[in-house]
Amino acid sequence: MRPFIFERATSPESAIAAFHADRATSFLAGGTTLLDLMKLDVVRPERVIDINALGANEIEISEDRLRLGASVRMADAEAQEELRRRVPMLTQSLALAASTQLRHMATLAGNVLQRTRCPYFRDVSWSACNKRLPGSGCAAMAGFNRQHAVLGASDACIATYPSDFAQALIALDATVDVVGRRGRRQLPFAKLHVPPGRTPEVETTLAPDELILGFEMPIEPWMSRSLYLKIRDRDSYEFALASAAVALEVDGGAVRQARIALGGVAAVPWRAREAEQALIGRVLDEASCQLAADIAFAKAQPREHNAYKPLLGRQTVARALLQAAAMEA
C-alpha cells in the first residue's frame, strides 16, 4: 500500500471541505472495496477522508416512502422487519450479498459505488484495462470473461457491475440525494451510473467532490410481491452470475405493473423496461414470463466464456417472475 493522508470528517460539509481536487482523494465509508483496492495497488489515493462519523445513518419508513441514509450498514437495513415484509426484494438483495462480516461494515452508498470484480481490473499486473488505465485496451475481451457483462457493455469494457442492492434500487425507482461543493441535488438512481461506452473509467455522474447522503423511494402495497433471485456458483458469499429483482402488481390475474432489474449480467444497474412493458395486461404464466425474459436479453452480446449468460439470465428472469407470481400479495 502507498502512503496517504488520512482525515476524519464529522459532517458532510467538513468532508467536502477536506476534498482537494489537486490530490487524488477517496472517501472512506465501510472500506470493504476501497481498502482491498488500495492494498492491491489498483486505487492510489493520496488523501483518504473517513466519512463514518458524518451521520447519514437514518432509516425512515413511512406509509408510502422509504429513506435510507447513505451510511446505513447493509446488515442494519437488511434487519428491518417492516422492510422485509413490505419490500422483500430490497432486504433480500442485501441479505444475499457478500458475507455477514462484510455486511456489518459495508454501507449502502458504498455498496452501490463498489467497483467491478473484473480480474483484469483488480490486478495491476495486467497492462490492458481501459477502466484502470484509460486507452490501454481491455484484456477481458479476448481473455477469461466468464463473469463479464452481456448487457450495456462496450468495445472498451465488458466489466460487470457487481452490486445486488443497486438492482432493487433501480427497480424501485429510487432517487439519490447528493451533496457537493455546489450544494445539494437529487437524481434518479437510474441516472447515477453511466454505461462504459468509450470512457469506462467514468462510472457515475457524481462529481469528484460529491457525496451520496441517502436513497429515497416510494413504497406501495403491491411491492410486498417482490423478490430478489440470485444465481451463483456457491450458496453464499459470492457474486451473481445472474440475478433478477422483480416486483409485480397483479390485478384480477393480470399484470398491472412489473419491475425487473438484472444483476450479474450488465455493465451498470440494469432495468429491463421493455420486458416489464411486455407483461402489462398479461396473465403470468410460463409463456408470458418466458417472453419477458427473452425481451430482457434480446440485445445481449455474449463473448467466449460468458456465452451461457443470456440463457441463464432468461431462466433467472422467468424463474423470478413465476416465483413472484406465486407469492401471497
Binding site: 480480474p119 481473455g143 453464499s236
Partner: peptide
C-alpha cells in the same frame, strides 16, 4: 488461465472458489 498469456486469472480467495458453510 488467460490462455493467450498463460497467466493465472483467479489467484485469490475471492475468485478461486471453495465451498462455504452454506454449501
Amino acid at each position: 488461465m488467460d490462455l493467450g498469456t498463460a497467466r493465472y486469472i483467479n489467484d485469490n480467495f475471492a475468485d478461486y472458489l471453495v465451498p462455504v458453510n452454506a454449501d
